[in-house]
Amino acid sequence: MKTTILSVTGICFAVSCTRVPAQQEMTTPMLQVTLSPVNDTVKMTEVKSGVYTPFFGKKDTSILVRGFMMDVVPVTNSRFLEFVKRNPQWRRSQVKRIYAESNYLLNWTNDTTLSPAMDPEAPVTNISWFAAKAYCDAAGKSLPTVDQWEYAAMADETTEDARNKTSYNKDILSWYEKPNTAGNRVHQTPENVWGIADLHGLVWEWTADFNEVMLSGESRKDVSNDAAKFCGSGSIGATDLMNYAAFMRFAFRGSLKANYCVQNQGFRAVKNL
């Protein structure tokens, strides 16, 4: 019923804007249409503006990241449960396959119950990009961009850019060797200098533009790039192959499709200032 009303609105809207194509009018995202808002009160903290050289991109490319607010922890099972209670179309039995594959919320007992083995304060995982985005929309927030996420995540407990520190890379890599961290509670890893926890050491996290990563999984080719597959690809490549902790993160993003639901992947939200 709600859908019908909204598509009617859509048509009215459409009629009203046949004249000129104005960008601003059209920002209705395709998923937000039927969302009920959630009251997300998780603590956010400010990440201040700064310039950083992304791992991918030209070596001399510096990117200005404007200040933004970021959730201090990933979205938990209990927070996501509230969301699906209010938004039945995002329940496991209701979700459309185009938005989430069959292992969406795989370990839940049913549509609105977590399994007894799950910690409500553990990060929600087995979640698709569309579902993560819908949650953020419903909370009045958005998914971080790769730049925002990487910028926030290059900090350690004392420095804003700790990427050259051995300890920083060692800590990240040690996570790869710990099995089943996804079931741990959020906020058990130390907060970084911005006051944000769990960027490393808990789960992988979705980013808004994860699909801009051109890694095909064929790493030898990725280094030189394949102009036949990627237009303009010559300008994108790893700036520092030694930074293999980051390399693995980008490889992971490159292996994803937006409806994938992976056991070791969750998400957190940001808000632009």
Partner: peptide, 23 residues
Amino acid sequence: LPHNIDLHAVTGTGGGAASSFVA
């Protein structure tokens, strides 16, 4: 992590690696 496979017995791009990248 994602992985793939390159088989040296394969005649084809990347020995299969390009087609086998899997999350």
